[in-house]
């Protein structure tokens, strides 16, 4: 997969399947037609705006190791656009993530999936989906799941602001330790607890991002 190093504030992308290496703190991506983006790293202070133009399609996979990151993502959907935002992250240190999705046009689909695994870090997530008045036939899905043993270090604030009567919106947030049934299953195949936990955590992250490399 080709890579683009992003050093400017604004970038237009059309029919691209690429890796992005973002070096600036403020970046705006304008998406035209059908695109697939992979991002493996972001600066500690990142403001990323993604503008989907009308009739555009974007899947963006972010596989991040957060460590004292402050990330703000703003998503704007055009008419008849589709956005799949997949974030698989581990986190150490103190991290803040804000995702603002603004649905102001019609017939768009936004699907946000976040899988996080704590490595003794803390993470605050504020995810807001705002569906504007007089918009029609939009669909908004948001699924944020985090594996951690320390509930006090993770805070998720999912927020839906819906001003339209014509929308399908759904959001889900989960904070939990490693699934005991999965752990039992893997141990029953002969894996040690430590190896099983490693596989489960990696699998949890891979389950939403690994299609990137395929």
């Amino acid at each position: 997969m080709n890579k683009i190093i992003v050093e400017q504030d604004e970038l237009d992308l059309q029919d691209k399947k690429i890796k992005l290496e973002i070096l600036t703190n403020h970046t705006t991506l304008n998406i035209f037609n059908e695109n697939y983006l992979k991002i493996d790293n972001l600066p500690n202070q990142t403001n990323l705006t993604i503008n989907l133009q009308n009739n555009s399609f974007l899947t963006i996979d972010l596989a991040l190791s957060l460590s004292n990151h402050e990330i703000n993502i703003i998503l704007n959907n055009g008419c008849n656009s589709t956005l799949n935002l997949n974030m698989a992250t581990t986190f150490t240190g103190i991290n803040n993530l804000t995702i603002n999705s603004e649905i102001s046009k019609d017939n768009s689909f936004t699907n946000i999936r976040f899988h996080g695994v704590s490595e003794n870090g803390s993470l605050n997530i504020l995810a807001t989906g705002k569906i504007f008045k007089n918009t029609q036939h939009n669909k908004y899905l948001e699924d944020i799941s985090i594996i951690t043993d320390d509930y006090n270090c993770v805070k998720i604030m999912p927020d839906l602001i819906i001003d339209s009567d014509s929308v399908e919106a759904n959001h889900k947030a989960t904070i939990a330790p490693v699934n005991e049934e999965e752990l039992f299953y893997l141990k029953s195949k002969g894996l040690t607890k430590e190896k099983a936990i490693t596989l489960i955590k990696n699998g949890f992250l891979n389950s939403i991002i690994r299609k990137i490399d395929e």
Partner: peptide, 19 residues
């Protein structure tokens, strides 16, 4: 049997046999 997304049969078996 439970479903585990993200771990393939090959990964599981190679890990189990190797361990």
């Amino acid at each position: 049997p439970i479903e585990i997304a993200g771990i393939t049969n090959a990964e599981l078996l190679r890990t189990a046999l190797s361990d």
